[in-house]
Amino acid sequence: MNGIDTGALLRYADLVDDVPAFLEAAARPLPRVVWPNPLKGDPERIASRILQRCPSAQPMDWPSGAYLVPAEENPGKWEEFHLGLIHSQEEVTLYPVYAMDPRPGEAILDMCAAPGNKTVRIGLATGDSARIVANDVSWQRLRALRDMNDRLGLTCIGVRRGNGLQIPGEERFDRVLLDAPCTGEGTSRKSQGWIRHQKEGDWHKMSTTQRGLLRRALNLTRSGGLVVYCTCTFAPEENEWVLSGIYESVARIEPLQLPSGVRTAPGITSWDGKRFRDDAVNAARFWPHQNNTGGFFVALLRKL
């Protein structure tokens, strides 16, 4: 039977350091990051506008000029947003791109890109000077990505529509981001603390899709290149188990670089009688109470 409440999160109680704090945080409204767009003017000047708009905003160490604004603010209605001076997104979604560390001139694939928050961060990280292919299966969600790109003024992103499993070619990209479709258990803070209960078969079905996408992502990555695998869910079936579907001779899981002060828990190597890859410990679990964010999972795979 499907139901929705944070009680579903108790499934992960033995993975969390502080269960009451975890459950309390998972139900709290989620603050948002607002960052200045360096393509549209002096970031410091734009940052001062953010503070004018929201005096209670908290400055962040990274990204430069970014602020954390309370959940009750709606930066998407500010004129600075419409003019492309700023963008607003959930904090934890910044970290896969930080871990990816994209460089100018690289060929980069964002495999499940819409609505595009991570894609535009990749574009900015390259100085708007790369070949970024943003793929998604949903035409409607790609429209949001195109609107975001046009608003922020990036010239290095191309959009394609299709199933990520069917992106043609081999070893064509230096870096690939796979923000995989998932059961979304880490997004409870965006829905007043409610999440959908999953059945055992739901995780299995989702992880089968995720394994296929990760294999395809590695096929599309050049030898020595990087794949960032991430989900917004806690289920080991959708995270460490998916990583364990990759032969260790194909890719190794490397430690993540994250901004200083960001707290994470390591990936796990066993759960519920299942054994995962030893190097899954290098992946990062983001629990909501650790950094006051949504829940997330990020792993960095180096193709051998």
């Binding site: 790369a130 070949r131 970024i132 195109r146 191309g158 959009v159 394609r160 043609p168």
Partner: peptide, 21 residues
């Protein structure tokens, strides 16, 4: 469309949009 000079699409990219309109 206007695209960064380094953005040279490959045939297999199958793009529908490219850079900034």
């Amino acid at each position: 469309w206007l695209a960064a000079e380094r953005f040279v699409p490959e045939e297999e990219d199958g793009l529908e949009t490219m850079g900034l309109p």
